[in-house]
Structures are given as C-alpha cells and as structure tokens.
Design a protein around this nucleic acid. Structure first.
Lengths: 146, 146
DNA sequence: TATTGTTATACTCTATAACTATA
DNA sequence: TATAGTTATAGAGTATAACAATA
C-alpha cells in the first residue's frame, strides 16, 4: 500500500530538481555552451586538470573527454598544455575567457543558493538541511546493499 | 559576499538530486531502456497518447518523438494505433510488456519515496515539504521576472 | 606491463526544414 | 489554412575497441 504523502514529497523534490536544471539550461543557451561542457568547466574550478582526472570526476570515458575538450578548445575556453612531469598527460587549462566562464558559473551557483534559501530563518534552514542529510545517508546505505 | 551555509545547502540538494538520478540510471541499465524512453513510458501512465501530446509533455520536437517511439516499438514496449476520430494522429499504446514496464516504474517511484522519506516523523516531513514548496514558489517567481 | 590520450566506429538524443496526409 | 507525423540532414554526448607514446 502506498502512502500518498510520501509520493507527493518526492514529486516536489523532483519538481525543484527540474527547476534548478532548467535554470542551468538557461545559462547554457545564453553562453552557447552545453551541459557536458559546463560540467567540464566546473571541474576546472581548482585549476588545470588532466583529462584522465576529468574522466574520473565526470564518470565518463577518456574518449568522451577528448571530444569535450576539442569543443572547448574550439570555443576558446581552454587549451591543452603539456604536463610538467608526465609527457603522456595533458593539462586542460582555462584561458582568460574560460576562467571568466568558471567564475561566472560559481557566481550563478551562489546566486541560486541565495535565491532558493536566503529568505529562510536559520533555524528552518538548519532543520531542512538535516533532513536532506538524513535522506542522503539513508539512500547511500541502500545503494551499499546492491 | 557569499554565505557558506547557503552554498552548502544547495550542495546537498544537488547531491540528493544526483543520487536519485543515478538510482534511475540503474533501472535503465537493467531494463535496457534509456532516460528518454523511460520518460516517454512514464507519460503513457494514463493510457494511449498521441505523439503530439507526448511532444508537448516532454518538451521536445515531434520529430524526436518519432525516433523514441520507433525505438520502443522495436523493443516491444508500444505499438502505434490509429486514432479513432483523427486519421492524422496515432495513439502510442503500451503493449502488455510496455504496461509491465510502466507499472514497474510507478512501483520503483513509490519505493523510492518510501526509502527516502518513510522513516521521518510526519511533523518533520510536513515541515520539510513546506520548505521545498516555498523554495519552488520563490523560484517560480524569479523565473517570471525573466 | 600499465597508463594517457587518440583514431575508428556506432548508437542515441536532439534540432530545423521540407513534405504528405488529413482536418 | 492549420495540424500530425515522417523523411532528410546535422550536431552533440556517449560507448567500446584498437593503437601510439610514455611511464
């Protein structure tokens, strides 16, 4: 037997998730970037990164990274630089234009957090985050079982 | 100036969203279906539907629906049936196999809701849902402005 | 031997534009 | 004229497999 309140709670979480996702799509259209390329730029936030690391971080194949980097090179967001100590590897490195995009992404992320949660009392925010945390933990435990 | 608590709250919401998404990917791998085809099957939950309606519901082009339906016909999940009163239209209709998949999707959705929220006190669940609701409303208001 | 990245190939999702059949 | 769906074409993301260069 199904509990309607639980299903509605999930409906709402999914709805919020969809809204956040469409907010990102809006940025992608404006910037001419795609979801996958934005994701890659986001991963460059801490500085130049090997393609291997990017493949692991994004959970895709190295071949896929090759294609995404090709696109970002073509659009002037990154360059491939030699790795200082491993001649097999390349360091995907943001250009000035690429850094501007990364910084803008980080700002949009913070703005989004502000817009979503900025008006909440701290007490309610704390309780909300606690529930999300418990939910994540419960979920992680379930995934472990499989 | 950025408020770290707000960013962390968004981090966690995104994390949960990612976990839910990877739970769905797991089903897709098992069933041999793709995200887009699962989405289409989900839309058939209320019964046979025209391709035009599906295009609107899924916010993609009619051409795209043609391709997705082709795939689901090939995998035996749906058939194209004539519309009883409009000879231009086709009704995408689940087969027995397709219905089984739809029902399984609905069950997985309910199970997920149970797993995520089933252990929460009703009071905490209510407050949690209230915050999500407010967040959605605030967000919708922001989207209006643009 | 193992790792990094690329070439080769293929499938899926997605879009626009032009077209056919029907309303 | 307008609508439902398809054919034609193209771009992006993704995967596997085989390969070259380097560790």
């Amino acid at each position: 037997m199904v509990d309607r309140a639980l299903r509605e709670a999930l409906d709402k979480v999914m709805h919020l998730s969809m809204l956040i996702s469409s907010d990102m799509t809006r940025y992608e259209k404006e910037s001419g970037l795609t979801t996958a390329r934005v994701h890659l730029l986001w991963e460059l936030g801490d500085g130049p990164t090997t393609q291997q690391s990017l493949a692991v971080a994004m959970a895709v194949t190295p071949r896929n990274i090759t294609g995404l980097v090709d696109g970002l090179v073509a659009s002037g967001h990154v360059t491939r630089e030699p790795h200082p100590s491993d001649r097999r590897a390349t360091l995907v490195t943001p250009t000035a234009h690429g850094w501007a995009a990364v910084k803008e992404l980080q700002k949009l992320y913070d703005d989004l957090a502000q817009n979503l949660f900025g008006d909440l009392d701290r007490e309610r925010l704390t309780e909300y985050v606690a529930v999300v945390d418990e939910t994540i933990a419960r979920f992680a435990a379930l995934m472990e079982e499989l």
